[in-house]
């Protein structure tokens, strides 16, 4: 599938933003974060900034961005629409929660309820993003049980890295945040490996014989395509990535997303602020680069059944 930059930016930036928002809310509800308003303000700017940037980026690839508001109307059938509704809906408790923490300097008591609602809606929004891809039956690499865990775990991990960096900057790091960070890192690592193994090994979804229904007559090979130059279907669904590039990019994604940030953030955790702060920030930034490469691959590696009509041998 064609990797559209607007969608890659959207899913990674807003994924990290919702991850950070959800974890801030849960840790605050558990009383494990400082009541410091500047800490809270920085956190909300980072989280809501990432989410808002992502949502705006996602409208760039539309043919009619000015009609984007219509996308929240079909929540009964469309996961894209549900995502839009939840993305907008999450702003309400998130901003109320931010008001309580930054202005009222309060996150306990009844604010806890708002914190939990914020965390739940953030998680559901990322869930809907993943379901947009999971629901597409023609794309084997997406229509499986690991796409949802993949999106959730990467949002959780990148969000935790930013929360970790914030707590270091404000001198508020604590073992709970450290523990959760390690859990998020290993979970993301595990799910990503499982996902790659799944898409490398599960059998081809549909064959050219199945696509044409001519299998009973023998092997089906494309003799003449209908068009001499690439058409929309080919540029949109037929994006191909060379095998050697794929291996290299997977390595880059894995190193940047997990192999560098996980040890880096763990080993600098107990050091003094002069080491811990740059270490934590660097880990988060490198992981975001890894997340971008990884999300690019998520699209570039996915094959669509429509390409079987243009000579693809597997889907």
């Amino acid at each position: 599938m064609h990797p559209a930059y607007s969608v890659i930016l959207f899913t990674t930036a807003s994924g990290a933003g919702y991850g950070l928002l959800a974890m801030m809310a849960l840790f605050a509800a558990g009383g494990a974060l400082p009541i410091d308003r500047w800490f809270a303000l920085s956190g909300f700017i980072l989280a809501l900034g990432g989410i808002t940037f992502g949502l705006l980026a996602s409208t760039f690839h539309l043919g009619h961005p000015e009609r984007a508001w219509r996308a929240i109307s079909q929540w009964r059938s469309s996961w894209l629409s549900r995502e839009g509704v939840l993305a907008l809906g999450t702003y309400v408790p998130a901003l109320a929660f931010a008001w309580g923490w930054v202005v009222e300097q309060e996150y306990g008591g009844s604010w806890r309820m708002i914190a939990v609602i914020t965390a739940v809606l953030s998680t559901l929004t990322v869930y809907c993003t993943a379901m947009i891809y999971t629901s597409l039956r023609p794309i084997r690499a997406w229509h499986n049980h690991l796409t949802v865990p993949l999106y959730l775990s990467i949002a959780f991990w990148t969000g935790m890295l930013w929360l970790n960096a914030l707590t270091h900057v404000f001198g508020a790091h604590n073992p709970n945040v450290g523990m959760m960070l390690v859990v998020a890192g290993f979970l993301g690592f595990y799910v990503k490996r499982k996902y790659w193994r799944l898409i490398d090994t599960n059998p081809s979804w549909v064959t050219p014989e199945g696509a044409t229904g001519l299998g009973s007559l023998g092997k089906v090979r494309l003799l003449d395509p209908p068009n001499t130059q690439e058409c929309y279907i080919q540029t949109e669904m037929g994006f191909r990535i060379a095998r050697e590039h794929r291996v290299k990019l997977r390595r880059i994604a894995f190193v940047c997303l997990f192999l560098v940030p996980l040890p880096l953030s763990v080993f600098t955790m107990e050091a003094g602020p002069l080491v811990a702060i740059p270490g934590a920030i660097l880990a988060a930034v490198i992981a975001m680069i890894g997340a971008l490469v990884d999300r690019w691959l998520f699209f570039a590696e996915a094959k669509h059944t429509a390409m079987l009509y243009w000579g693809a041998e597997t889907s």
């Binding site: 043919g63 984007a68 279907i233």
Partner: peptide, 17 residues
Amino acid sequence: CIGCKLCSWACPYGARE
């Protein structure tokens, strides 16, 4: 139509352009 192209992704037959 907002031109998000998702419908064309959902079609296994490549029918939408």
